[in-house]
Simulated scan of single mutants.
Amino acid sequence: MRRSEFLRAVEAEFGARSASLVDDLVLGAVGSRTASEALAAGVPPRDIWLALCEETDVPVERRHGVGRLEPRRG
């Protein structure tokens, strides 16, 4: 998962709350940092996404593949 995919996934899942969750919610699974701090520290976006999902009780079926753009069709 790339940073851009992470940001799309957060927006898709949390909508208007996404910015505050990324900037304010401390995630123990990524070193007791916010998602923004973890990204800045070089934590892989997928690890942050999964930590955010776990902390906010996102159902397992919505944790994978979100944030990816559809493949280009030629």
Rank of each mutant, 00 (worst) to 15 (best):
R2T: 14
R2S: 15
R2H: 15
R2A: 15
R3I: 15
S4G: 07
S4C: 14
E5P: 00
E5T: 02
F6Y: 05
F6I: 02
F6G: 11
F6S: 06
F6E: 00
F6K: 03
L7P: 07
L7K: 11
L7T: 07
A9W: 02
A9Y: 04
A9T: 04
A9H: 00
V10N: 08
V10Y: 00
V10C: 13
E11H: 13
E13L: 15
F14C: 08
F14T: 03
G15V: 14
G15Y: 12
A16N: 14
A16W: 08
A16R: 13
R17Q: 13
R17L: 15
R17F: 15
R17C: 15
S18W: 11
S18G: 15
S18Q: 13
A19H: 07
A19S: 12
A19F: 13
S20V: 14
S20F: 15
L21M: 14
L21Q: 06
V22D: 02
V22N: 01
V22C: 12
V22H: 08
D23T: 11
D23Y: 14
D24F: 13
L25K: 07
L25P: 10
V26Y: 04
V26S: 10
L27F: 04
L27A: 10
L27K: 03
L27Y: 06
L27N: 02
G28A: 13
A29M: 09
V30Q: 07
V30I: 10
V30F: 03
V30T: 01
G31F: 06
G31T: 08
G31V: 02
G31R: 02
G31W: 00
S32L: 12
S32C: 14
S32N: 15
R33K: 12
R33H: 05
A35N: 05
S36P: 05
E37Q: 13
E37H: 09
L39F: 01
L39G: 03
A40N: 10
A41L: 04
A41M: 08
G42Y: 03
G42M: 02
V43L: 00
V43P: 05
V43I: 11
P44L: 05
P45A: 00
D47Q: 14
D47W: 08
I48S: 05
I48C: 06
W49R: 00
L50C: 02
A51V: 10
A51F: 03
L52Y: 01
L52P: 02
C53T: 00
C53N: 04
E54S: 15
E55D: 11
E55N: 13
T56D: 01
D57K: 07
V58A: 06
V58I: 13
V58T: 11
V58E: 07
P59L: 03
P59T: 00
P59K: 02
E61V: 01
E61K: 09
E61I: 07
R62K: 10
R62Q: 09
R62T: 04
R63A: 05
R63V: 04
H64F: 13
H64C: 11
H64T: 06
G65P: 04
G65A: 00
V66Y: 07
G67P: 02
G67I: 08
R68V: 10
L69R: 07
L69Y: 01
E70L: 15
E70T: 10
E70H: 11
P71C: 09
P71S: 10
P71W: 02
R72Y: 05
R72G: 12
R73F: 12
R73P: 05
R73S: 14
R73D: 11
G74Q: 12
G74Y: 08
G74N: 08
G74M: 10
